[in-house]
Simulated scan of single mutants.
Amino acid sequence: MYITISPQKLGGAFSQSAGDFVSYLEKENQGKNLLEKEYFFNQYGDNIRPYEVIKEIDGNTAKLKLKEPKYYSITINPSQYELKHIHNNPEKLRAFVRETMKEYADSFNREINGRPISVNDIKYFAKIEHERTYKSNDVAIRENKPYSNQIAHLKNELRKVERGEIPGNTRQLENEIQKLVRDAPYKIRGQVVEPGMKKEGLQSHIHIIVSRKDASNIYSLSPGSKYKASEVEMHGKMVKRGFERDRFFQNSEKAFDKMFGYNRNYVESYAARKMLSKDPKQYIISLRSLGINEKKIAFNLIRQTGLQLPVLHLPQSKVGFAYKQLKKIIEAGIKASSIGY
């Protein structure tokens, strides 16, 4: 489970309205009939139309400055293991989103009129998408790039030979191209993976657009607050402030596990990914200490790239150590036949 929170993109090239973002989220509905389309939903209903989302979000921005985000984007990315566990059921995904938004509200260290913030104070709209495409920064694209570049060069050369522009052996060029295709590390149905190609397997994920202002359009609720949960004195009284991201991420995972009886492996957890980013050595120690069955599943998860290891903002020596140790453990497990393919 990967959950991200991003503020609205601002600046001269971006609109103050939520319209562009909502239109982007409609991309999978293009060419589909009314029964096939995925609509927006929120805590209270389904089948919400795009124009309603834009109207509600754009109309809920009282007293926000031009340089302040009017909304935040939350993306929930279940793993293929999690999606398989719930049979990729859209109704279960919607139920999970509604539970997750309760956790979102609970993660604000704020009060409104003396009471804790609840999901009823949050104005949001969510949309399920079922497809993903490869982007230029994906591992598969980066590792395929030397092969893709050479294939493109040879195909261009082949066309020139066929047109008689340059001398050459077409059969030899075709054989070289075929060899490069065979050797490329990532392929889909015999084709080298390139940007824009659809990813295989279960790819369902959820985009949530959540207003910066509460449902009453009075209070500003920012999950991007630089303050962790704390209290500060303002105008002679103590005021709560902050948003607990760690709590939100961890409790969302727990909600999924409880709702659907999912037995989460250590390497799937937010706590483990955070450990990897902060203390790779301790992460490796924790991985080694897993029981035999859990370790086998953990190795499979790592090897099958269902897990996207986060970018590590660490000294290169620490990053190198972590990945070298991880590689050694995986290779040792393969040799000992402790993990399967």
Results as ranks from 00 to 15, higher is better:
169 N>R: 03
139 V>S: 02
286 S>P: 11
78 P>K: 10
341 Y>Q: 04
307 L>A: 11
255 A>D: 02
336 A>K: 02
8 Q>V: 13
208 I>H: 04
217 N>M: 05
11 G>Y: 14
158 L>A: 00
49 R>G: 01
9 K>Q: 14
256 F>W: 10
223 P>E: 03
22 V>T: 00
138 D>V: 01
302 I>V: 10
22 V>G: 00
117 I>P: 02
268 E>R: 02
200 E>H: 08
230 S>I: 08
179 K>V: 14
25 L>M: 08
4 T>C: 07
204 S>L: 02
264 R>F: 05
155 K>F: 03
6 S>I: 13
257 D>R: 04
285 I>N: 11
314 L>D: 06
130 H>V: 15
51 Y>R: 06
246 D>P: 06
245 R>V: 05
123 K>V: 15
72 Y>C: 00
197 M>K: 06
339 I>K: 01
247 R>W: 03
137 N>W: 11
196 G>I: 07
44 Y>I: 03
212 R>H: 15
304 Q>L: 15
209 I>E: 03
256 F>A: 07
5 I>H: 06
145 K>H: 12
149 N>V: 06
243 F>K: 03
51 Y>W: 08
82 E>R: 13
170 T>F: 05
214 D>S: 04
224 G>F: 09
259 M>Y: 12
77 N>H: 05
222 S>K: 08
121 D>N: 08
271 A>T: 12
200 E>N: 09
250 Q>M: 09
171 R>E: 15
98 R>C: 09
223 P>S: 03
84 K>S: 10
35 L>W: 08
3 I>D: 01
254 K>C: 03
281 K>P: 08
314 L>W: 07
140 A>K: 11
48 I>Y: 05
304 Q>N: 15
149 N>F: 05
29 N>C: 09
341 Y>H: 04
82 E>D: 11
172 Q>A: 14
